[in-house]
Design a protein around this nucleic acid. Structure first.
Length: 598
DNA sequence: ATAGGGTTAG
């Protein structure tokens, strides 16, 4: 139909029937995959007398250009603008080009122009448009594309449905994604992967894993692949769901997918984020194809688990293997130095990174250096470093300094950092908590009260702390003061018992940090009900004696809980692994691997 | 011609 539309122009250009030379040019355009070749063919076509914007030539040339690995958009745009009546094929090609480019917005503008010209999309248009919407996180436009596809009765295509699924997942509307999924009569592998990934990306790992069980039930229809595995492993890693992750790992081995390097990287990440660095190393050793990402994941993983020196050893080995580190690798390296107090070595890496690896330090690297100095107690040096850095310090930089001040009880400098933070990122509840702890640590109760009032007045709400605990096949979520667990009464009884036994060991609650819990008035009770305590109590009740207890917490562990957990590990003879917001704590026999420094 | 993936300072 659209070819008919353009045929008058084609006829005017002398191309009602492609001439043999035009046909040869088109064949050449279709077979070549490099820009110079395409340019050459284009020039050749013009030399043999084919008009500059011959529609057939333009259509194939634009298609070939957009299909190049990094498409020369301006060249395609020029040709496109010369076409008086672009057909739907060429429009789709241009929309695809924009949708896949670093700046997808023009794809949506082109869609608006099509709307204005009452040119309806065909079933191929929607996936490109939805891809652009997904990448731009443009929910409104995406939803309008959805209703348009319904209106034009184009939703029966699996491609359109999968694109909708992916779009909703990418924009965080996993429920809408799931609804599209539920209504699909035919589902292929991409369908399953998109819906699983939609849940995995949006912090719903339990749903992702449930869906995986469903695919396995339908194994004869759809067989999960590497993409599925990476999504699942990512979901498990986020939860610290080690047992579930191990089951996925078994499936990977059984199904012969273990050679896939992306899966290997995801496994390294899973074991690192679950606090089993040994297994992360084992996966790394057994990987047939290690990429920079594999090395980087392992280095970061070792560093967060407190094995900074081992992390640096791997970095040296990587250099010997002539593998070029990325900027992320260097973040890992500096992170390792900072968590192990290796100040001088950290500075050596930092000062050499441009010369040795051609990597110009980014704000993240400067952040590591502030952390490195701050953790080591050199808070004034950290402040000087911030004042002299060539990049504009952001909120994270000042927050790092504030954290160091809280750690080393430096009220004056902490207030300097705070004054920057309320301008750069007002209303960040974590900053209030840090400053409050700093004041409380110095017994500055008036300031604490003032801060508390301004927090209430400004409507700043503390992020509720919650802890995850994996038992059997399930991951349990505990929130402070939570009563939703059917065994709440038993948990609270257990907490009583724990409190009694700890007191016998000479435990006294440290209530200085409790002021963070703005609404809670009874300090000591509040401490006992911190989410990690609930999770540990439940873990002690439900797991076999001597079994390790693993907790993942969304915030940092408070000083009092840290002390209590150390004692619990001793009294109950349990290894307790807590993944903090920023690092790992491995408690065993009354000691923590962070050396009380976090 | 049409859909999907991993590592990043606090």
């Amino acid at each position: 139909m659209h070819d008919e539309q353009i045929s008058p122009i084609a006829a005017a250009a002398g191309a009602g029937d492609p001439t043999p030379s035009l046909r040869r040019c088109i064949a050449l355009l279709r077979s070549h995959s490099s820009l110079p070749h395409l340019r050459q063919t284009h020039a050749h076509a013009l030399r043999t007398g084919i008009p500059l914007f011959h529609p057939l030539l333009a259509k194939h040339l634009i298609f070939s250009l957009i299909s190049l690995p990094s498409p020369p958009l301006s060249y395609a745009e020029l040709l496109f603008s010369l076409l008086p009546n672009p057909n739907i094929f060429t429009l789709n090609t241009m929309i695809r080009g924009y949708a896949e480019s670093p700046h997808p917005l023009p794809a949506l503008l082109l869609h608006r122009r099509m709307n204005a010209a009452s040119l309806p999309p065909d079933s191929h248009t929607y996936p490109f448009l939805l891809k652009a919407c997904a990448r731009l996180l443009d929910l409104r436009h995406g939803e309008s594309v959805h209703s348009l596809s319904v209106k034009n009765a184009h939703t029966s295509s699996v491609f359109v449905q999968n694109s909708l699924l992916h779009f909703y997942g990418a924009c965080g509307l996993f429920e809408s994604a799931h609804q599209v999924f539920e209504e699909m009569p035919v589902r292929n592998l991409v369908t399953w992967n998109s819906v699983i990934n939609g849940f995995a990306l949006n912090g719903r790992p339990n749903e992702a894993l449930t869906l995986f069980q469903q695919v396995l039930d339908e194994e004869n229809v759809v067989k999960p692949d590497g993409f599925t595995m990476v999504s699942l492993l990512t979901a498990c890693a986020e939860l610290g769901a080690l047992a579930l992750g191990r089951r996925v790992h078994l499936y990977i081995i059984k199904s012969g997918l273990y050679q896939n390097s992306h899966i290997g990287n995801a496994l390294i990440d899973l074991y690192s984020k679950s606090g089993v660095a040994v297994d992360a190393c084992k996966v790394f050793d057994e990987m047939p194809d290690r990429t920079v990402v594999s090395w980087t994941s392992l280095i970061v993983g070792l560093a967060v688990n407190g094995f900074g020196k081992e992390a640096l050893k791997f970095f040296d080995e990587m250099e010997i293997g002539k593998l070029k580190p990325t900027e992320i690798t260097l973040v890992g390296v500096l992170y390792a130095c900072s968590h192990c107090g290796l100040v001088d070595q950290g500075f050596r890496y930092f000062n050499q990174m441009k010369d040795d690896y051609g990597i110009v330090p980014r704000i993240e690297h400067y952040g590591c250096m502030v952390d490195l100095l701050g953790r080591a107690g050199l808070v004034n040096k950290a402040h000087d470093f911030i004042l002299n850095m060539p990049l504009e310090p952001n909120a994270v930089i000042w927050r790092t300094l504030l954290g160091a001040c809280a750690m080393h009880k430096r009220v004056g400098l902490g207030e300097v950092a705070w004054s920057r933070l309320i301008k750069l990122d007002p209303g960040h509840s974590g900053d209030y908590v840090l400053l409050s702890n700093l004041y409380a640590g110095g017994s500055r109760w008036t300031e604490v009260q003032k801060l508390r009032r301004s927090m209430i007045k400004g409507g700043v709400k503390k992020t509720p702390g919650h802890s995850l605990l994996e038992l059997g096949n399930k991951v349990y979520d505990f929130v402070m003061g939570d009563q939703s667990n059917p065994e709440t009464d038993l948990i609270y009884e257990k907490l009583e018992e724990i409190a009694k036994r700890l007191r016998k060991e000479g435990y006294v609650a440290r209530t200085t940090n409790v002021l963070a819990d703005i609404q809670e008035e009874e300090k000591e009770t509040a401490l006992c009900y911190h989410s990690e305590r609930l999770a540990i109590a439940f873990g002690l009740m439900k797991s076999a004696p001597g079994a390790a207890i693993r907790i993942v917490k969304n915030l940092r562990v408070c000083e009092d809980c840290h002390l209590a957990i150390k004692l619990i590990s001793k009294v109950y003879e349990r290894e307790i692994v807590v993944r903090d917001r920023s690092r790992f704590h491995h408690f065993r026999d009354g000691i923590c691997t962070c050396k009380d420094y976090w």
